[in-house]
Amino acid sequence: MRGTIAVVDSFTRDGLRFDVTDHDPGPIDGGPPVLLLHGFPQTAISWEPVARRLAGAGHRVLAPDQRGYSPGARPAARRDYRIEELVADVAALIDAAGGEPVHVVGHDWGAIVAWALAALDPARVRTVTGVSVPHPAAFFRAMRSSRQALLSWYTYVFQVPGLADRYLSRPGALAAALRRTGQTPQRARRDEAALAARGGLRPALSGGMGWYRAVPHWEHRGLPVPVEVPALMVGSDGDSAVSLEAVHGNGAWMRGPYRLEVLPGVSHWIPDEVPDRLADLVLEHVVG
């Protein structure tokens, strides 16, 4: 048993301030914290159903609004959104939460950050779970050898500053785009509203697209660094953005215990669509 720990509702790094949702189970000792990293174009609110399940099982759960999404963490330069910076942000959150190694779970771009943290700073990671998106090296390899390049057409559009930001910031445009990828109308409106509430829809979209625009500036091009900590990959066969070839290629970059789960009939939005199933998989992984 332990006493109630201090809530982390924000942390700072290099003059940037990040907002955090801290689900503290109180006096229950559930072991190391679980970090939940959202993707594009979502915020920590997308993890709410999963976070409640994990906290209910006794785990402290931390869900940050990441760089570009937190209003106080929106630098202007493309290089400021490199994967190395995103990983350092999460490391700063781990320090703010006490510094012990964590279980890290990421969806979409959050999965890329989770894989990168596990590869580049493994001492901070107990286990890693990637949801929907595999290790960057597996993803980039699939871009060259499968239909992944076609599925990723929108990433090329995002490279033009102001183009997609301006279009998707029109009322209802982002929600409509999310619905076309399998998100429900209610959750699509939720995600659009959540971004708009964080300093305006267009600034939040531009911040999120900064992650795509910074890829050519990564210091670790393609992140050809394997993961040695225990790893879980959760994909789905109804994903309109990520090919199964990319998902199945993930194992080539795993050096420790590894499990792959492909959920049938599920879209890209796994944490929203099947939160209980995902929470069960994460709980099995972090306990095992």
Rank of each mutant, 00 (worst) to 15 (best):
A6R: 14
V8P: 07
D9W: 01
F11L: 05
T12G: 15
L16D: 13
R17Y: 01
D19S: 14
V20A: 08
T21C: 03
D22Q: 07
D24A: 08
P25A: 06
P27N: 10
I28C: 04
I28E: 15
G30M: 09
G31E: 09
P32D: 10
P32I: 01
P33H: 08
L35Q: 02
G39M: 08
F40V: 14
F40N: 13
Q42N: 06
T43L: 03
A44L: 04
S46N: 10
E48P: 03
P49H: 01
P49C: 04
V50K: 02
A51R: 03
R52Y: 06
R53W: 03
L54M: 00
G56H: 10
G58K: 05
G58T: 10
Q66S: 11
R67Y: 08
Y69C: 15
A73V: 05
A73W: 03
R74A: 09
R74W: 10
P75V: 08
P75S: 11
P75G: 12
A76T: 15
A77F: 02
A77Y: 01
Y81H: 11
Y81M: 09
I83Y: 03
E84C: 11
E85G: 10
V87C: 10
A88C: 08
A92T: 10
A92E: 11
D95Q: 14
D95C: 08
P101D: 12
P101C: 13
V104N: 02
V105N: 01
G106H: 05
D108F: 02
W109N: 01
G110W: 00
A114I: 04
W115Y: 15
A118Y: 03
A119F: 06
L120Y: 02
D121G: 04
A123R: 14
A123M: 02
T127W: 00
S132M: 14
S132W: 01
P134G: 11
H135Y: 07
A137Y: 09
A142C: 05
S146W: 09
S146A: 13
R147H: 12
A149P: 02
L150S: 08
Y156H: 13
Y156W: 12
V160N: 05
V160Q: 12
V160R: 12
Y167N: 09
L168A: 14
A173N: 13
R179S: 13
R179F: 04
T184H: 11
T184V: 11
P185H: 11
Q186S: 13
R189D: 15
D191G: 11
A194F: 00
A196F: 06
G200D: 03
L201V: 06
L201S: 04
P203Q: 05
G208P: 13
M209D: 02
M209G: 02
Y212V: 12
R213T: 14
A214K: 04
P216R: 07
P216H: 05
E219W: 01
E219R: 14
L223H: 10
L223M: 11
P224N: 09
V225L: 03
V225C: 07
P226W: 06
V229T: 09
P230V: 02
P230E: 02
L232Y: 06
A241C: 13
L244P: 03
A246C: 06
H248G: 03
H248W: 12
N250G: 15
G251S: 09
W253V: 00
M254Y: 00
P257E: 13
V262E: 08
P264Q: 12
P264A: 13
H268E: 08
P271H: 11
D272M: 05
D276F: 04
L278I: 06
A279F: 06
D280V: 05
L281R: 02
E284Y: 03
V286Y: 00
V287Q: 14
G288P: 04
